[in-house]
Design a protein around this nucleic acid. Structure first.
Lengths: 216, 216
DNA sequence: GTATGTGAAACGCTTCACAGCA
DNA sequence: TGCTGTGAAGCGTTTCACATAC
């Protein structure tokens, strides 16, 4: 059949394959070999083949993978067939930047609403959306049928926002707060944290200095 | 001894431990058990103990880990002893938001310079830094001795910026571009991508819908 | 000839279970 | 009694190598 059950490590790479395929398609490519796809998505050819074999056999031996068909298949598996509604909570610097960044639309999503607790911001228009107040959050979620949310509020408010979101039926949260959110088991949270990423890079820099003979 | 060689999976969790410890310390905690630390950093007690054992024995049986001493040790291992200089390339919406976000300082870093190619932005002051032109990049890197950089420029410019950074001695890059950067082996790149994160969340939502019997 | 699809081996990470120490 | 530190077992991921198909 198709995707019986996809390993976590594979799932985490599917969005990157989709991105690489779309870019290659826009550049005019009709087929891509596992090696080319690996290069464009920063993995290895063996991983690409193993990963894509989870979705069924879409490649042609001696030729490669059909760019358009595989991109469509990946979009389907990822649940991106139609612009999925996402609610953005927090219209501060970061929230506004993300809304303007275009990452939502580029990724196949639709900003269904923008929410902020600060009354000075409520009513403004950001990325074509009138910012709505925190009190409206439950009603907005019901109205838009959104089950995905992005949180860019300060740490102190993040847990309370998450609780409200979960109570209103949200099951997937992308959080830019630095704290670890406590949510029910059926809710998926992914965290993005600038400081953590930089610190990890810092660690590897230091480690490489200590052992400079690695690439003898 | 100390950290003979730290596994990748462990290294990736060290920043989270540090964050949790600093927060607990500010809240007045003196010691933390592996279970408490696990809860605060979103992992498991077994992982915490295994991870921290890589750094040597810093815990006390029957008591837990000393918050202040362990935080200091982690900061040392991560190379955060003094505010490490980081160069921010790209002063658009996202770059400005990150600079204002406070993630650099909170993480133990210092913004050494802000760079942008847009002449309309050059000369403005962002987070206390006068934005400098792209031509100044090599000189700025030499002058600040920065080896870490954050890239928030458009995809089309990202590879060229990365090349310049690498040529000027940068060995760690945090990129918000969606493309995969091609860099020499000794350079570490970490990518943060809103669309990828959302797509992965979307996949798990869809998967959970298809198999709703998972949690009996 | 060229590139996919896939079993099998190798590797690393996580979990378990408990000895050891305060 | 409570919690750390750690060998060993269990599990998932990556890599390898090659049969298979175009």
């Amino acid at each position: 059949m198709g995707e019986a059950s996809i390993p976590d490590a594979t799932a985490a790479r599917l969005p990157r394959y989709l991105q690489a395929l779309r870019r290659a398609g826009q550049a005019g490519a009709v087929t891509l070999s596992s090696d080319q796809l690996a290069r464009a998505s920063g993995t290895s050819a063996a991983k690409v083949r193993k990963d894509l074999s989870c979705l069924g056999s879409h490649g042609t031996r001696g030729v490669g993978y059909p760019v358009a068909a595989l991109a469509a298949e990946l979009a389907r598996v990822l649940g991106l067939d139609e612009g999925r509604p996402v609610v953005l909570v927090g219209a501060g610097n970061l929230g506004r930047a993300l809304a303007a960044y275009g990452g939502f639309e580029r990724g196949g999503f639709r900003v269904a609403a923008v929410i902020d607790a600060d009354e000075r911001i409520v009513g403004r228009t950001i990325a074509g959306h009138r910012v709505r107040s925190a009190e409206e959050l439950p009603a907005v979620l019901t109205g838009t049928a959104a089950t995905m949310a992005v949180i860019t509020v300060p740490d102190t408010a993040a847990q309370s926002v998450a609780d409200t979101l979960v109570a209103a039926g949200v099951t997937a949260i992308l959080s830019f707060a630095t704290i670890y959110l406590d949510v029910p088991e059926h809710v998926r949270v992914r965290r993005v944290d600038l400081a953590t990423e930089l610190q990890l890079l810092s660690f590897y820099e230091q480690a490489d200095e200590d052992v400079p003979a690695a690439a003898g």
